[in-house]
Design a binder for these strands. Structure first.
Lengths: 264, 264
DNA sequence: TGCTTGAGCTCGCGA
DNA sequence: TCGCGAGGTCAAGCA
């Protein structure tokens, strides 16, 4: 930890912010503030106690006491400025985060600061996550039977004028099958699949099957799908994940180096 | 601030966590940890220094040194547990956040804790934001000229079998106009507008104009749109916002009460 | 750099 | 509670 200031005055706080805001450090500030944003939209947040986090890639977040998402933020900041100003006879520490493209600005006015810390966080490890849509693609390619017995994959990511088909295959009767994979299917998914099937029917001049593969489904979307002569196959997320883990196991021991962590 | 602990041992940390995790407090923890998640997907995050935030509505976030988004999280937690365990001969503080629906768990193993704070954040103020899609609707209704001179709004949210039309209007030649408003238009927006126009042409047995109104547009989508005989009108977000502010001004003085902030 | 697409999306609204 | 759509979406991958 570089700094830990409890109830710092604005002079001391600006000093620290001036030094660390533009650089590769994580800053946490707890305090009473108001926040204004203007850019793609415009927002105003009246006084309240919040946690402001400036990250090492310049991103800034204003977190309220609730919710996953911050109340205000800026994912990429081009320039920071810190000033102490008198607004309506009250001294305020004003932090401004500007971004050029799109042109946006977040202004945070602190009335008081409870806590200000500066950390250098070392985190070299990547998040390994399984269960993405692409993992379902791979699981199907690995074992097409999870969709249907006797299915053979012809091509993944087949291009059509309407976009890319997730999986293009043939069933056991040698009929072409267009497979659309979605974690969270909706009406647009159905329409998209419909368009692919139409395109392929044009390309191959014949009847083509369309299958939506997803880990979950609602009755309404299922009806909508079947009204269009399309099919649905449910895939268990567990199958996808374990299938992937089998692959992961075979590649084990390739890249497990530990990172170093300073205690500064 | 309720607590501020620098480099607490696990016993002291568990004590504080046990007391405050389940209650309405904001907890910040900086430390070296690994994180595992299993639920809708599965993820693994190796050791690294991170900031963990437990919010007052039970949400928990694991923020790395970069990015807007947390590396791991749980928006709603049903039960927390804290344990000190020996894993491979090393003492670890293990924090588990479980959720029932969907069935998910985030497990955070701390190897060391730099800083642990407990705050009670008071924030009663709502975020006031302008520039939503609905604000564009209102701006058009307020002044249809921002779309086109001589335009008259017939109905907002007109229902058709294909869904709700944002704005239904007539142009200066008395021809019907279907207006679709989108902040972030894409291909689906075009298809949607197309469907509305088709529906209305059927209902009124005549040629109908379709206009996509948006604050931004790409060339490809514009081509796609014009290929279908549909039109695009760019609306300036500033016009929408200032128009809204005029309304805001007229309602001023209704609800500006200041919140109280304790200094505990 | 811009565009497209997915996300453990989240969140709020409405049925 | 579930379904649906918007988001200042963000962020990754690719052209």
């Amino acid at each position: 930890m570089k700094h830990l200031l409890e109830n710092p005055d604005f002079e001391k706080a600006s000093e620290v912010l001036d030094e660390y805001l533009k650089r590769d450090f994580t800053i946490q500030m707890n305090g009473l503030c108001t926040v204004n944003y203007q850019g793609r939209a415009k927002s105003k947040l009246d006084r309240g106690e919040r946690l402001v986090i400036k990250k090492q890639d310049s991103a800034i977040l204003v977190h309220g006491p609730e919710n996953y998402q911050p109340k205000n933020w800026q994912p990429e900041v081009d320039s920071y400025s810190v000033k102490v100003e008198y607004i309506e006879d009250e001294e305020m520490l004003v932090l401004e985060a500007r971004r050029n493209n799109p042109d946006e600005v977040v202004e945070i006015r602190f009335e008081s600061i409870d806590l200000l810390t500066v950390h250098k966080l070392v985190d070299k490890s990547d998040l390994k996550i399984r269960g993405h849509e692409v993992d379902i693609h791979e699981a199907i390619e690995d074992d097409p039977d999870i969709v249907e017995e006797g299915l053979n994959v012809v091509k993944r990511e087949k291009e059509t004028p309407a976009g890319f088909i997730d999986v293009f295959a043939r069933d056991e009767d040698d009929q072409y099958v267009v497979i659309e994979v979605k974690r969270n299917p909706d009406y647009n998914t159905v329409l998209q699949l419909q368009r692919y099937v139409d395109e392929i029917e044009e390309e191959f001049s014949g009847e083509i099957r369309g299958i939506l593969v997803a880990p979950k489904m609602t009755q309404k979307i299922l009806d909508y799908l079947e009204d269009r002569g399309l099919e649905f196959v449910e895939v268990e997320m567990e199958d996808v994940i374990s299938s992937y883990e089998a692959i992961d196991q075979s590649q084990k021991g390739l890249s497990d180096f530990g990172a170093d962590y300073s205690t500064e």
